[in-house]
Simulated scan of single mutants.
Amino acid sequence: MIITGDNVDGISDLKASLRHTFEIKDFDFLNYFIGLEVISTDDDIYLSQAKYASDLLTRAEITDSCIEFTPLESNVRFTPMDGTVLHNPTLYRQLVGGLVYLTII
């Protein structure tokens, strides 16, 4: 859970209340949280998922792949099964889940 705001006393009271019911850790400055990089300035907070996306590419072992321009040629046909079995279906499912998470956040 991230608690943020400009009312320091209110945040302190909320954290004290939560400590009575839950065991919590309090990190003064947030840098990285569930795939989000957090950059704070005096006026703004910036969120980025660049590291998360880069980690997904590394996991998929496609960091050195060539890019392809889109749209593809109009005659290209994809089939659901070309006879090649996935070497690691669990990794595939994890990567798809990671991409879904990346697009939802």
Score class of each variant (00 low, 15 high):
D64P: 01
E68C: 01
T58L: 13
L91N: 03
E23V: 01
P80R: 09
Q49P: 10
R19I: 02
I105F: 07
S74V: 01
R59E: 15
L47E: 05
P89L: 03
K51T: 02
M1Q: 04
G97W: 10
L18F: 12
I105D: 11
L18N: 05
Y52S: 04
L91P: 04
Y32E: 13
I105L: 12
D42E: 10
D13K: 07
F22D: 02
T90L: 09
Y46I: 00
H20G: 01
I67Q: 10
L56R: 03
T103W: 07
T84D: 07
S12T: 05
L102K: 05
Y46H: 08
S12N: 12
T70A: 15
L57H: 08
F27G: 08
P80H: 12
N88L: 04
G97Q: 08
T63L: 13
F33N: 10
D26H: 03
R93A: 11
E37H: 04
E73F: 03
L72H: 07
V76M: 11
L18K: 01
I104A: 14
I45G: 07
A53R: 01
Y32P: 14
L36W: 12
D6R: 00
I39M: 13
C66W: 02
D13I: 01
N75D: 15
D9K: 07
G98L: 04
G35I: 00
R19W: 02
S17Y: 02
T58M: 11
Y92V: 00
E61Q: 06
L56G: 04
F78A: 13
L102D: 08
I62P: 14
L30Q: 08
I39F: 13
Y101I: 00
V100D: 10
V100P: 07
V96T: 03
L95Y: 04
P80D: 15
Y32N: 14
H20P: 01
T90E: 15
D55H: 01
Y46D: 07
S48A: 06
G97P: 13
E23G: 03
F69Q: 09
N75T: 05
I39A: 14
V38I: 12
I11K: 15
I34K: 13
Q49L: 03
I45P: 07
L30V: 09
L102R: 05
Y32I: 11
G98S: 05
A16P: 07
R77D: 15
A50E: 10
H87M: 10
L14Y: 05
V96A: 13
R59P: 10
D28E: 14
L56D: 09
N31M: 09
T70K: 09
K25T: 10
S12R: 06
D6Y: 02
F33D: 11
V100M: 12
D26R: 01
L47H: 02
N75L: 11
P80E: 15
F69L: 08
E73I: 00
T79K: 15
L18H: 06
D28I: 00
L72Y: 07
D28S: 08
I105W: 06
R93F: 09
F29A: 10
I105N: 13
